[in-house]
Every structure is written in structure tokens, then in C-alpha cells.
Design a protein around this nucleic acid. Sequence first.
DNA 1: CTGAAAGCGCTTACAG
DNA 2: CTGAAAGCGCTTACAG
Lengths: 358, 358
Amino acid sequence: MHTCANGDTIVLVRNSADASPFRSASIKDIARLAKVSHSTVSRALHHSPLVNPETGDKIRRIAEETGYRRSAVARSLVTRRTDTVGVVVTHIADPFAAEVVGGIEDAALERGFSVILANSGGDPDQEVRAVESLEERRVDGIVVTSSRVGALYVPMLARMKVPIVLLNNQHPGDFVHSVMIDNVEASIAVTRHLIEAGHRRIAYIGDRNGHQSDTERFEGYLTALANADLMFDAGLVAQGDGKPTGAPAAVERVMAQPQPPTAIFCYNDMTALGVMREVRARGLKIPDDISVVGFDDIPFAEYVDPPLTTIRQPMHEMGRLAMRTLFGLLAGSDSTQNIKVPGELIVRRSTAAPKETR
Amino acid sequence: MHTCANGDTIVLVRNSADASPFRSASIKDIARLAKVSHSTVSRALHHSPLVNPETGDKIRRIAEETGYRRSAVARSLVTRRTDTVGVVVTHIADPFAAEVVGGIEDAALERGFSVILANSGGDPDQEVRAVESLEERRVDGIVVTSSRVGALYVPMLARMKVPIVLLNNQHPGDFVHSVMIDNVEASIAVTRHLIEAGHRRIAYIGDRNGHQSDTERFEGYLTALANADLMFDAGLVAQGDGKPTGAPAAVERVMAQPQPPTAIFCYNDMTALGVMREVRARGLKIPDDISVVGFDDIPFAEYVDPPLTTIRQPMHEMGRLAMRTLFGLLAGSDSTQNIKVPGELIVRRSTAAPKETR
DNA sequence: CTGAAAGCGCTTACAG
DNA sequence: CTGAAAGCGCTTACAG
């Protein structure tokens, strides 16, 4: 309840017994209290120079005192902007997604944007539904991480919907706007690191889910082997599932070879965690008996024992870059943006020279 | 562009050179194409029984073909609901927050709700700003995790704003609606676990940021000691910062005691990670020389070496419970909901009997 | 079964 | 500097 100097009073009451939507104070309520038109209230709240400073102050004071909150939904209807971006991730609890969203959040906050989260669960259909739901909510832009749909968005875009940028697109083929880690180069770098340490038999444990990033990392692995004139041995390649649980079977397969590997390159850090665990369960010491490398540099990579050698993806920065691209698009840029971000080789103690060479 | 059987045509054009907000198709465009009123279109899109089945089908087909997306913002303005919940977290990249948000997401999706994310950065002022921003966006409800404001929301609520539920409130004192882990009981359980293993000198490494949860966990620790008739030694208590980085100094302090501890109870798993690392750097073996326990059971707790004994917080489930409470409130419930969730002691290999007793 | 009308809470030319 | 008016894209009584 707010009582004015002139005795006017406003009481907002929940309508009836249940908590169904109640009417919150509107610009008109403030107008009545301030004895001005609602147009003037609207201007005052925007600090428009068109309103008398004293009137403006009075209006803002009343708004403050009554706990008035302007309705972003009403505003959006007329401005046709929601100052909102949608982000679709596979699972928010995935450390990669969480870090990326952190970067997106930061960039959004700087511009007064909010972010709406949507899950794809890694499923193409659910991903499309998530994007559609975001479109209904009239977000100003969308970033899709680890998309399984990728280029299929092109026709949607042709219909002139919201701008979309993909972050680490997992669908083969290019998309108009994207920020991607340079998987091939990074993969060459880790593999070369192992080769230079003296390894000749290097296993690759991939991801059976057919991610584009897996294809590219495998490609980098092959390239590095070729560059060093090392033979490729298909027996040293096995598939995991991107999670620790997929590792044991894959380790079993490569270690069963007549000449087992002295190093294992894992598709990602989560796989590496499972690999380290399985390798250790087999009584092997890391890195003395076998070297292990991952990919991503998730926050825990440095806390496992031994700390994991890996490729750092600048996840937070990638989130920001995706937002910068989006803001550029919103500002009218219509150029294609395909940003390729370099990974960084982080050498820790899970890698060393192979036994034989020492 | 959409061309109708009757030759009518609709073309939507971005207005002018820049990508400024363009007009997306509205219910009226569909109405024109279908040669009905926009009221009928609205009904058809809702599958209202009030519309002729054939007319309805025709309308929906046209909507489909033109890629029409109803505007949730316009709908919200009239229905006074946004089918949206706001979630404020300290940092989304925090594993605890990410898991909780995962549970919230799942519960939201089941009811067709979207979630808007907002960061508090652990700062009370920013937390309040985040909540206000969510109110402006007219979310139907808000869940605040690890609130630093807690009971201070009461006056805001008195103004009849959006329902708020706190998840693991970190502000002293109770709030109307909350879901909390039972810190005291859980803390008694881990401490008792150590005592039963034979430990007599148990250190506690807390969190200097003054979280309510730290106070409660410390309380549980004291209670368990007292229950076992063990003397409390202030020299065995040190403060970390909830992150691995805060651990070394704290370990230094407790290990410098004339009689160092044989076990360390850490405020949370992140602290335990740092403790394990520091303890190992000092040449001590875990658990042979010293036992370490954490709190939370973050996803990585089982992958560190040795796997960490800890208290599992059912984070995902807690997120769902918060949503259930919110939905109850939205459905008209006006009862106070203070849900206390039990933690679960997960014994792994970072704890064992102390050396002397073996 | 259908349409005309009012209204949700704002913003913003337009006229004073 | 201020107000009346139109309109953003929907929903929903109300009258046929």
C-alpha cells in the first residue's frame, strides 16, 4: 500500500484465494499518483530529457517507493527487442558447457542482456525444439553449443528468423556463423608432443557418437603420425563415449595388441579420466609405464593425479566470442563469421618419455 | 515468401539496410492467408474446440508452411504468465550450481517452462540486482541458490512480487520457502565415520567467506567430537576459501601443530582437492598417512586419486524439489515450505584407519 | 462455429 | 515540457 501526500492510495490485492497471476503496478498507477500522464511516466523512467527534472524526480521517487517494476514483456512488444539471448547446450552440468555459458553470461551482463538456457540433450530433434522455443520467446539471438544439426539451420535462417551462431558445431559441414576450436592443429600438437617425447606406438581413443570434433582430432592424429613417418596401426584405435565409463573397454582393446601402446591420446578429458583409472587398475603407472593425454582442459584436469597433459580450449573466451559475433549481427553486420580459435597445449605430468628410451 | 492457392502472397522484408528488429509474421498475416479473422487463428493455434476442424487444419497448415512462430511475449502480456522461472547462481561454472540448474531445467522442461539464468557472483548487491532484473522480465518464480541475502527477501515478498525459493541459503536465519541440505547431520556423519575409523585428531578446514553452510558443518563437527568425548583443539581448525587455492595455507597451519591431525575434514570437495594436492606435496600418502574427506560429491570426487570420501548432496534432486515448491506456490499453495534434504555419506578410498592403530 | 472489440503495459511520433 | 492517440501481437469474453 502506498499513500500519497494528497491522500491518494493504491492497494494491490491478489485476486481471490489462489495465487493465480495478480496485477502488478503499472505505469498508469504511477501516473495517477504523480498526477501526470502515463506517457510522462514512461519518459521519466527512461530519464528522457524531454521531462521536467523535478517532475522526473518525483515520478522516479514514487516508482521507487511503490516498488514498481517496469514490465520487460510490454516493452519488448513495442520495441521488438527482448535484450535476451538463448543458449542451447547438451547438458548444463557438462563442464565444457558450463564454462562456455559462463563466458556468454559475462558478455550478456555487460550489455544488459539476459540469457535463457535450453537443453538439447545431444539430440537433434530436441535441439530443434529448443531453438523453436527460443524463437517463440523472441530472443534477439541464439548460440547453440555442440550442435548436432549445424548446416540444417540454413533454411531456418533463410526464413529470416533470429541470428544463430554455433559454438563447436558437431555436424559435418560449415555454418554461416560459428566459433570453433581448431581441432586439427591442436590434435597435431599433442600428438607431436608425444612423438617428440619418444613415443612410437600411440593409441587414439575416440568418441563413438560421431562428433565432428572427433573426426577432426583423429585427422590431426593421423597427420602428426604421417609427418613423423610413423606407421598408422588400426589396432591402436578404439572408441569410447566421451565419458569415463566408456574408457575401460577401449583401453582393453588397445592394450590387448601384441605390441601395446606406450601413450594414449584421448578424445577428451572425461575419457582420459576413465582411461587413467583403468590403466591404473591394470597396475600400470602414469606416466612411467604409459602416458595419457586428454583434450579440453576441464577445471579438474590439473587436480587429477598425475595432473593431466591436455589441450586447453578457451571455453570462457569462446563463449564471449560467440556473443561478440551475435552482437555484431544485431548491430547490422551481415558478414560471415567463422572464427577458429587455437587450442593451447598444456603439458603436465601425465606424459613422459616411454620406458624403453630411458 | 509464401504464395497461396488463391495467389495471395506474403513477403516479409527486413526493414532497410541494417539488421534492426524486423517484423515477423503475426497472427494477422495468417488470418489474411486463411481468409478468417485473427481470433479464429488464435483459437486454431490453441486447438480450441470452438473452431471448425477443417478450418483449424487449414490454418495450422498455413502457419506451418510460413514458418509462423507465435509470440510468447504478446501472449504473456495478456495471460500475465511467462512460463518462465529465473535461477540465480553464484557462478554457473561451479559444479554444484551446474548440477542444481540441471535439475531445475529438467523439472521446467516437463511443464513447458523456460529458465533464465542470472549470476550473483556471490555478491549480495549483485544478487539483488539479478532478482530485480528477473522480476522485470516477469518470470513466474525465482530460485536463488546459495543466497547471501536470505531473509532480506521477506520485505520484497511482502510487496507481493514473484514467489522465491532459496536453495541452500547461505544467509543466517530462515526464509519462507527453502530447500536445504541437512548440513549438521551430514557433518556429524562424516566426522563419526573418521572417529569410528580410529582417528582422534581430526582437523576442520572451513570457508572464510562466512557461509551459513560452513557454520553448520563446523557445528556438526563439534557435535560429533563431543559425542565421542573427544577434546576440541582450536589448533586443528583453519580456514580455506572453498576452492583448491585456499587449501595450502590451511594445511600448513594444521600440520604445523605439535601433534598434527591424522584426518582432515574439508568444508567442500573443491577444498579437499587442494588439500589432497598439498598433503601429497608434503610427501604424505592418502589415506596411509592421513585421511581426507570432502563435502558435496561433485562429479569428479570419484575420479581423483584416491577417490574421495565425501557427503553426497543430491544436487539434481534439490533443483527439482525447488521447482516443485515453486509450482506448488504457483498453483495457489500458501503454506511455508522448508525442505531439509539428508546428505549421504559416500565412503571411498581417501579414508582409512590412522597409522598408529594399525 | 466466427468475428468485432477490448485490453494486457508499455513506447513514441504528433500536436500542442 | 506534456498529453492524447495509436499500436506492438496476442487472448478472450460478447454477440451473433
